[in-house]
Amino acid sequence: MKLNKIHHVAIICSDYTESKKFYVDVLNLSIINETFRSDRNSYKLDLQVADRDIIELFSFPDPPPRPSKPEACGLRHLAFEVENIQESVDYLISQGINVEPVRVDLITGKKFTFFKDPDDLPLEIYES
Results as ranks from 00 to 15, higher is better:
R103G: 09
L123Q: 11
S38P: 04
P101Q: 10
P122G: 07
T17M: 12
S94W: 05
N4R: 14
E127S: 15
I125C: 04
V99C: 08
L57A: 10
E81G: 03
L29T: 10
A50E: 11
R52D: 11
N98M: 07
N41M: 11
N33G: 02
K110N: 14
V26D: 05
P64S: 08
E18K: 02
S42K: 00
E127T: 12
K116E: 14
D15G: 02
L47C: 06
K111F: 10
I11F: 09
Q48P: 02
G96N: 13
L45Y: 12
P64D: 10
K111S: 13
S88A: 10
L92I: 11
F112V: 11
E34N: 07
K116T: 09
I31V: 14
V26P: 00
Q86F: 13
I12G: 03
V89A: 05
N84L: 10
F80Y: 09
L106G: 09
K116I: 00
L57D: 07
I85Y: 02
K2P: 01
V9H: 07
E34D: 14
G74M: 06
H7W: 02
K20M: 03
L3E: 10
N4P: 00
L92W: 02
D51S: 07
I31N: 11
D105S: 13
V102C: 11
Y91I: 07
L27Q: 03
V9G: 03
R37Y: 15
L123Y: 09
G109L: 11
D120T: 01
T108Q: 05
G74W: 04
I6V: 15
R40E: 13
L78D: 01
G96A: 11
P65E: 05
L45A: 13
I32D: 14
D105W: 14
M1F: 00
E56H: 15
I54D: 01
I54E: 10
N41V: 03
A72I: 04
I97L: 13
H77I: 13
F115A: 13
L29R: 01
L78H: 04
I12H: 04
F36H: 12
D25Y: 06
P63R: 08
I31T: 14
K21I: 06
E34F: 08
E56L: 11
R52W: 05
T108C: 04
S88K: 06
I97T: 08
R103P: 00
D25K: 15
D46I: 05
S42D: 02
S59D: 12
K2N: 13
E100V: 00
S88I: 02
V104Y: 01
N33K: 11
I85A: 13
K69E: 12
L75K: 08
L45T: 06
S68D: 12
D46R: 12
F22I: 03
D51Q: 09
L78V: 15
I54Q: 09
D53C: 05
P64V: 06
L106P: 00
K21P: 00
P70E: 10
I6E: 02
S30W: 01
M1D: 15
